[in-house]
């Protein structure tokens, strides 16, 4: 019996709920850790980055104003669909990161579980970080967290799925929208995650995923005046590049999560830092009287 000829997937960008090729027409070869060909990934350009920001801005109103319960349901649904794609993620993580099947399975399982963990935060974070404030006067005064806006996320270079989930999910929890620059050498799980998002009731534009060299998109995202915040996780260990991005981000006072000296161990408990880094606190005063 002859072996069936596989139908291979074209890996593309994910922008505004669609899967375009790069407008530049460029692509690059993705290989496994032994140098064997895996796919041609799209090489996102600065124009693609701008399109992604436009899509993310457009999606912000709807996503940020959805009820927290609804966002929680939608994000939980993402985990369900990830579970269905588990085998594919395991293949891609194993090949891209050079992991044994067992270790890759562990990484994928942890990624799905982490997504579930974050999905549960949507309708809890406001109670943990919000407050009513006992002011010295006849006013009711309360503070609520709100999403910062459009967040550019430079995904970790090494941990292609668990790292990605660990930086993307916390951005989405509170209602931000995201433009993700994926790992350059290991982009396949990010693209597959885009396909998961596209089939999980996440509105188009809430997450946009760019593959390619970070240097081709990150400077434009960091400098973009309609981006409100940036997570520099993907620039870990490249101090000079991270500094340049932070300098660009200062132009409109983006909220910046700095690049660590080295990529962290993503299996550690995440805590709330990455959720709270992309929140604004709004305080409302109203007189009390009859």
């Amino acid at each position: 019996m002859s072996e069936r000829l596989a139908v291979k997937k074209t890996y593309k960008l994910y922008i505004g709920g669609k899967f375009p090729r790069s407008e530049s027409g460029r692509s690059y070869q993705v290989t496994d850790t032994k140098g064997r060909f895996l796919a041609n990934a799209a090489h996102a350009s600065r124009k693609d980055a701008r399109d992604a920001v436009v899509a993310a801005r457009k999606a912000f109103a709807g996503w940020s104003r959805a009820t927290a319960y609804n966002r929680g349901q939608v994000l939980y649904r993402v985990a369900e669909v990830m579970e269905g794609r588990r085998a594919q993620f395991v293949d891609e993580v194993a090949a891209g990161e050079g992991l044994s099947r067992g270790k890759a399975e562990k990484a994928v399982d942890e990624s799905i579980d982490r997504w579930v963990w974050y999905a549960g935060w949507t309708d809890k974070i406001a109670q943990v970080v919000g407050s009513s404030n006992p002011v010295a006067g006849p006013y009711f005064d309360f503070s609520v967290p709100e999403p910062t806006g459009v967040v550019a996320v430079l995904a970790p270079q090494r941990s292609s799925l668990l790292g990605l989930v660990s930086v993307l999910a916390p951005v989405l929890v509170s209602g931000n929208t995201a433009v993700v620059a994926s790992s350059y050498e290991r982009p396949l799980p990010a693209i597959t995650l885009g396909e998961v998002l596209a089939t999980s009731d996440v509105p188009g534009g809430v997450v946009n995923i760019l593959t390619g060299r970070m240097g081709d998109t990150a400077p434009w995202l960091a400098a973009h005046m309609d981006v409100n915040a940036v997570d520099l996780a993907g620039a870990a260990g490249d101090d000079e590049h991270a500094r340049e991005l932070e300098l660009a981000a200062a132009e409109n006072l983006k909220r910046v999560v700095r690049a660590p000296a080295d990529e962290p161990d993503w299996t550690a408990e995440p805590g709330l830092d990455r959720i709270t880094s992309f929140l604004e606190t709004k305080t409302v005063w109203h007189p009390v009287g009859i």
């Binding site: 404030n133 002011v135 305080t283």
Partner: peptide, 9 residues
């Protein structure tokens, strides 16, 4: 209106 208990920024 301002108050030490009330976050401002």
């Amino acid at each position: 209106k301002f108050d030490p208990t009330s976050p401002f920024g």
